[in-house]
């Protein structure tokens, strides 16, 4: 499965939550804090890196707040395997 991430322009976001149910991976939540307009902006909460970069959230966002990135398949030489495992183990321990 492809992986990716999104960046939400928190100042532009109106906290309408349309992106939340649109996300098949359920990795979008509203922040507890408010932006300067007084809205609770959406944010990506994706500890398991399950965002696929499918862009469905961005497609429904009425305010064009979301930029979507998709990870490119990497050659073997990229990050050493053990580093990745350690990170995952760390996340699981926290969760």
């Amino acid at each position: 499965m492809a992986t990716g991430r999104i960046v939400i322009d928190a100042e532009r976001c109106k906290g309408c939550e349309l992106c939340r149910p649109a996300c098949p991976q359920s990795v979008i939540q509203l922040a507890e804090s408010l932006n300067t307009k007084g809205y609770r902006p959406a944010m990506l909460v994706d500890p398991l890196h399950s965002c696929t970069g499918c862009a469905l959230c961005a497609v429904v966002c009425p305010d064009g707040c979301i930029t979507v990135y998709r990870d490119l398949p990497q050659k073997q030489t990229s990050l050493p395997k053990y580093e990745m495992k350690e990170t995952l183990a760390h996340v699981e321990a926290v969760a």
Binding site: D9, K37, G64, I66, V68, Y69, R70, L72, Q74
Partner: peptide, 19 residues
């Protein structure tokens, strides 16, 4: 090697303002 690519971005024909 690039790590990621942008697959969705705000269209440039929209002004950079809040509606």
């Amino acid at each position: 090697q690039p790590l990621e690519k942008i697959t969705y971005e705000r269209p440039s024909s929209l002004c950079d303002v809040h509606t």
